[in-house]
């Protein structure tokens, strides 16, 4: 399995919100939605990022610390090295009766955008619940709508869409009629709550988890979650 880091050139940078940018690169990867890459800047660091799209390769990155800020200093024409695609992504059924409901918090929307694209290409109806603290923190609403998803924003301050957490909006959606499948990505607490709601409703759910990644290829053990689950090899999507 050759996963040497490959250099890509940044062709376009889209500002998603005050701290988040989508970097569109000059190539494609044969990947499934939910898979991630290890992005490398020589001499700086290497960290995992979900694919927001695979053709062209796109990464949606929030500037929260040293490495993500270093990536935010890159400009069109600069290089970014990617190792991957890695891990196991979301798995869509062959046929689906009912809706695919996506639940994303923060940059967790990134892999859901790729998943929405794949699901829409197969003609599946998609409802995307996108959560953030305020309207200024929301991202990818237009991109999801352009893919043909029904987009339901949820903000904690009620500035846009439903006031409250994405889990409240998910509870509404479950009450509307049971979806065929729920797929979620976001902070740990949100994922745990989404998992609980879906289990209680008897709806199949796939959750994309985060962990501290080092090797990214199932050898070092640093990304263990729960009782012996390797996020980079068994996940990041638990399905």
């Amino acid at each position: 399995m050759n996963t040497l880091p490959q250099p890509f050139t940044i062709t376009k940078i889209v500002d998603e919100n005050a701290v988040t940018r989508t970097f569109i690169l000059d190539g494609a990867l044969a990947a499934e939605p939910g898979q991630f890459v290890m992005a490398w800047l020589p001499g700086v660091d290497e960290k995992p990022f979900s694919l927001a799209a695979a053709n062209p390769v796109s990464l949606t990155i929030a500037a929260v610390g040293p490495f993500s800020r270093a990536i935010h200093t890159l400009r069109t024409g600069d290089a970014l090295w990617l190792r991957g695609p890695l891990g196991r992504g979301f798995r869509l059924p062959e046929k689906m009766t009912g809706e695919l409901v996506l639940v994303g918090g923060g940059y967790g929307v990134a892999p859901l955008r790729f998943l929405a694209e794949t699901a829409r290409a197969r003609g599946f109806p998609v409802r995307a619940i996108v959560g953030a603290r305020t309207s200024a923190d929301l991202l990818a609403l237009d991109a999801l709508a352009a893919l043909g998803a029904t987009v339901i924003p949820a903000t904690e301050d009620g500035s846009v869409g439903r006031r409250g957490l994405v889990t409240h909006a998910l509870a509404d959606a479950l009450a509307d009629g049971l979806p065929a499948l729920v797929c979620a990505c976001g902070p740990t607490g949100m994922l745990a709550a989404v998992g609980k709601l879906c289990d209680a409703a008897g709806v199949p759910v796939q959750l994309s988890w985060e962990a501290h990644m080092r090797c990214g290829i199932g050898l070092c053990g640093s990304c263990e979650r729960g009782d012996g689950w390797l996020t980079c090899l068994d996940g990041p999507v638990e399905r």
Partner: peptide, 11 residues
């Protein structure tokens, strides 16, 4: 241990 990157499969 060392900072990332720490491993690579080169094929």
């Amino acid at each position: 241990g060392h900072p990332n990157p720490v491993a690579v499969d080169w094929g």
